[in-house]
């Protein structure tokens, strides 16, 4: 598997990371090297082996449906770059 330059640009766009044109070929090489490394896993025969869902073989813990959190708008908004009253404010999103 190998990524072309267009795919690198697309991945960057989807991740909202600005990539200069001169960086594309470097990134392409680095990403391909990473993918090549990971592809070594393909050499292992996993026929009949159940996928591992986590380090600990536990079931998902479930909590009771109780109100235990919230009512702290000030703390939630404390790091907001911009706010209007108790709303987050962001550049206008136009449909």
């Amino acid at each position: 598997m190998s990524l072309d330059a267009a795919t690198v640009r697309r991945i960057a766009k989807l991740a909202r990371i600005r990539v200069n044109e001169e960086e594309v070929s470097t990134l392409q090489n680095e990403l391909n090297a990473i993918l090549g490394y990971v592809e070594q896993l393909g050499e292992v025969n996993v026929e009949g082996v159940e996928p591992l869902s986590g380090g600990a073989q536990m079931a998902l813990r479930q909590r009771e449906d109780k109100l235990t959190d919230g009512d702290m708008a000030e703390k939630i908004l404390a790091n907001a770059p911009d706010r209007i009253e108790n709303f987050f404010a962001v550049p206008k999103v136009v449909e």
Binding site: R63, L67, D69, G70, I76
Partner: peptide
Amino acid sequence: SKLFSGASATYGGAPNAHV
């Protein structure tokens, strides 16, 4: 409460109060 948190899942409320 919400799917993955203990904040209120009730409609409405003051802005960002159920968070």
